[in-house]
Amino acid sequence: MLEARLEQANLLKKVVDAIKDLVQDCNFDCNDSGIALQAMDNSHVALVSMMLKSESFSPFRCDRNIALGINLGSLTKVLRCAQNEDILTLKAEDAPDVVNLVFESAETDRISEYDIKLMDIDQEHLGIPETEYAATITMPSAEFQRICRDLSALSESVSIECSKEGVKFNCQGDIGSGSIHLRSHTNVDKPELNVEIDLTEPVSLTFSLKYLVNFCKASGLSNQVKLCLSNEVPLLVEYALSNNSYLRFYLAPKIGD
């Protein structure tokens, strides 16, 4: 059986909020290392990969591999019934029909309990190869969100060019063009504002802004976001969570010109 207790319901609320517009039905794969989720969006352009390590829960117990097929719309409805600060416990039997969610308020004696019916989801699982990326950019997640939002007003796509000079986000649209240039930057007082660019070779790739704007819904999960790029491979956008847990998005580049 599965029993996983989260100190704050907020974490799961934010994760589900960040991915629910991209994927609708998905399996939460539970085993002794934690709870993982991998799903492609309907158009097979983007891939979501979430890992909530067992260390992110206290306690965490899962004796056997259990796949919880959940509709994220249903999960959102139930998670809205939790206060951000509530303690959240997920429970399921070994061959479950439902997943049970218990929300406990630390301040009051209120305990609420919900069951969500599970679905059989036949999902193809993709193997994501270990990649040595040519460029890795770590930057404030709010800055990345702003860039994507600003440029999406002008164009459907953005080119991300990374060189010794820094990183340049460029777009061309019907009304004109826009570009934002960032260089490595260290702020000793506010390290969450740092921009770090780790480059082994120059990279230039073009991506759909619609998807990037969607990924940025995860900005509330982490002050910083990591962008990993190599020519002709999908972009990795990573929001690191505590205890080595993470929310990652992969986006296939645009091809040709």
Binding site: M40, A252, I255, G256, D257
Partner: peptide, 14 residues
Amino acid sequence: KQGQGSIASFFKKA
């Protein structure tokens, strides 16, 4: 005109 690649063409089925 640019085409959009599919993520499944980069990552193999596990």
